[in-house]
Amino acid sequence: MRTAVKDVMTRRVTTVREHTPFREIAEVLVANGISATPVVDGDDRVVGVVSEGDLMRKEEFREQYSGESYRPSWRSRLRWWKAGQHAEGARKAAGNTAAGLMDAPAVTVSPFASISRAARLMDEHGVKRLVVVDDQGRAAGIVSRRDLLKMYLRDDDEIRRRVVEGIPSHARWDDRYGIIVEVRDGIVTLSGQADRRSEAMAAVRTAGRVEGVVDVRRELTWREDDLVTLPVTWDRP
């Protein structure tokens, strides 16, 4: 069974409204020990996310907006230009409510999505967390990078069981005959002798797809190479 986002997400979600003022957002983040919170509309649907980084824009631009000669650091300006966000910093610095501070639309994921899907979304959008929403677009939880790492804390025996259960029913995977499965610190070692090379390769692929597997070491042999590649011949003109 594949692990879904709902199995690892944090279910307790603290939200703010679009009209929530700056100071109240800061209080929510500090009081709850969180770095970001979803922003919801009047129907409780998620419309954006506001983070502590968004709030810090105001402090970074404070002197500039006080009429003084402050300019953001060269490194900050370069980062914003690369991300296409050179105007975003100024916008957020001027914001006084969640609506003016948040990133919108929020990057969301279904509670039934796989954790692999969640990881891809985080990578694609360059975010550290996703808002988990139900089919009505309302917040059901938060899933972070740290939550996704939980799958690597599985017991070695549990990982081995999942590897063995995932193999084709006709293959032999046991410690007496066929392919031997051993797991230590999340690293799967496949040894022994399979009937066919295709079976051995299928075993390696299966083990590699199991959540929580750090690496797969192949120490397999086979009796028959049924994946022999025929030589390519070229017709001469």
Rank of each mutant, 00 (worst) to 15 (best):
residue 2 R to S: 15
residue 2 R to T: 14
residue 10 T to W: 08
residue 16 V to W: 06
residue 19 H to K: 09
residue 20 T to P: 03
residue 20 T to H: 05
residue 23 R to G: 00
residue 24 E to S: 05
residue 26 A to R: 05
residue 27 E to V: 08
residue 33 G to C: 02
residue 35 S to Q: 00
residue 36 A to I: 00
residue 44 D to Y: 03
residue 45 R to L: 00
residue 45 R to W: 04
residue 45 R to H: 11
residue 47 V to L: 00
residue 52 E to G: 08
residue 56 M to Q: 05
residue 61 F to E: 00
residue 62 R to S: 08
residue 65 Y to G: 04
residue 66 S to H: 12
residue 67 G to Y: 06
residue 67 G to T: 05
residue 70 Y to A: 13
residue 75 R to S: 11
residue 76 S to R: 12
residue 81 W to K: 11
residue 85 Q to I: 00
residue 87 A to F: 13
residue 89 G to R: 02
residue 89 G to E: 04
residue 93 A to T: 04
residue 93 A to W: 02
residue 93 A to H: 01
residue 97 T to W: 09
residue 99 A to I: 06
residue 103 D to Y: 13
residue 105 P to G: 07
residue 107 V to M: 06
residue 109 V to P: 02
residue 111 P to R: 07
residue 112 F to L: 11
residue 120 R to M: 14
residue 121 L to Q: 13
residue 122 M to D: 08
residue 124 E to K: 15
residue 126 G to F: 09
residue 135 D to M: 11
residue 142 I to P: 04
residue 145 R to Q: 13
residue 156 D to F: 04
residue 160 R to G: 08
residue 167 I to Y: 14
residue 179 I to W: 04
residue 187 I to C: 06
residue 197 R to H: 10
residue 201 M to R: 13
residue 202 A to Q: 10
residue 203 A to I: 00
residue 213 V to F: 01
residue 217 R to H: 10
residue 218 R to H: 03
residue 221 T to L: 03
residue 226 D to H: 06
residue 226 D to I: 06
residue 227 L to W: 05
residue 231 P to F: 02
residue 232 V to A: 13
residue 233 T to H: 09
residue 233 T to Q: 08
residue 234 W to M: 09
residue 236 R to G: 07
residue 237 P to W: 09
